[in-house]
Design a binder for these strands. Structure first.
Lengths: 244, 244
DNA sequence: ATTCGAATAATTGTTGACATATTGCAGATT
DNA sequence: AATCTGCAATATGTCAACAATTATTCGAAT
């Protein structure tokens, strides 16, 4: 009977950890902003104890920085740090793709093909708006990482780096970019996986992510709204939605 | 004046986090053992509040697993997980080595040479005992990762994966292995970095770590004391040193 | 008027106590 | 004798209050 509501974490610290992490990656808690314990405890209707535990867990995930006697602040990613993350992601997703190519079964390849077909429909149907990149791209990468069979790699990429990238995307107010080209590259990657060509699959995935990185960087150069985001006025705005 | 004692963390949660992490990677808290809050709070002479914050931070670092209403347990690495970590490490240290080769200055190369010379002395002086591998190998890898200039990569490799590997080494009661061969490989790597041959440096580093992994795995096959470590009787022994 | 300093307010760090869930044990029943 | 049930003990989850440090504001002196 009570299995119908598994969403609510049984402990308050876990629950507020999820809510805080979501608030951070969605930008409701802007990068660089202070994490005010009394305010958040009132906002979430809990005591400061579980809240502090959740913040400490966020610190372990590197989503906030805590200075003694000064409180926690949401991390703020600058351009250099985004490059660092993309370098790591390029290397690790290349690894994941190589592993996936080496051990992918026929059913796995079929699932990849179906995913690509679904994305193609979405590209054709959504005229111009291109819902594709935001969810579809992640689905594709997630599936390949899952196929790699390396659980820790999956947690690292999809659990930690993913949140950091989401945080950066919300900073740069990114829109989908180069979806058609990305779609072609996805097909190439699946071809390599189907042929069990592990080396080629790794190379193509690394190049695919390098392309995405360059697209992001050139957009950062043309769109100067982000980049030197931290310590600017926009980081000091009050957190919205404080009434609930 | 007060700069002489930076060791003592100003907050209890940070301090006990360091002590707990050290206790875990040193094996004083064996893998799979329960993290008993009342006992540890008495042992460290603090309240349960900061202790729980430290445990939550350890959870964020993936060094303990917390089940609601059941407490925290030290993670236990089996053979598959060790392989997973080595796969990630191979990829990331290859990346670090490539980056280091691309941007290493003449002084950096000199520092690498000096480090290798120091290691050579230690190999020659320590007759058979071979103090080398344990500290020297880490020094070498640390320096290269630092030369990569990627701060997040440094934190990831030297901060998180390093602790996991230490934990696994203490599980397998590892001794130094194949130090002479490793020393040769270190020289090859530095040669590539000096020549600014980034691709070769990456390849050599990845192969170097693959060799280390294979050495560990073959030793695991011959020495059956580890491997299926978790849930065995040895994980249920009481934590030693409970009197202080 | 500006700057320095002290008092005040707010926030963080820490503790002990209370509520709740789990574990282990003892005794009764089949 | 074995199993099930209920109670006791232990551990975890949560909260409110206290202590200590930091930020702020108000006032005084140059």
């Amino acid at each position: 009977m009570e299995s119908g509501a598994p969403l609510k974490s049984s402990t308050l610290a876990d629950s507020v950890f999820d809510r805080l992490r979501t608030a951070i990656v969605k930008g409701e808690l802007p990068p660089g902003s202070k994490v005010n314990e009394p305010q958040l405890s009132k906002q979430y209707g809990i005591s400061r104890g579980p809240l502090r535990e959740a913040i400490r867990r966020l610190e372990g995930c590197k989503l906030v920085e805590i200075k003694p006697n000064a409180g926690a602040k949401v991390i703020s990613l600058n351009r250099e740090q985004a490059i660092e993350i993309y370098e790591i992601r390029e290397s690790l997703e290349g690894l994941a793709c190589r592993l996936a190519a080496a051990k992918a079964s026929a059913d796995d390849c079929l699932a990849l093909r179906e995913l690509l077909a679904k994305h193609e429909q979405q590209i054709e149907s959504a005229d111009g708006r291109l819902y594709y990149q935001k969810e579809g791209d992640l689905d594709f990468h997630y599936l390949i990482i899952q196929l790699s069979g390396n659980t820790r790699l999956f947690n690292l990429l999809c659990g930690e780096l993913y949140h950091l990238l989401r945080l950066y995307r919300v900073q740069t107010s990114s829109e989908p970019s180069r979806p058609v080209q990305a779609f072609k590259e996805h097909h190439q990657i699946v071809d390599a996986i189907e042929n069990q060509d592990a080396e080629l699959a790794e190379l193509l995935m690394k190049r695919h992510i390098a392309h995405a990185r360059h697209a992001l960087m050139t957009r950062l150069d043309t769109d100067p709204v982000s980049g030197k985001y931290q310590d600017s006025a926009i980081t000091r705005i009050k957190v919205a939605g404080g009434e609930v």
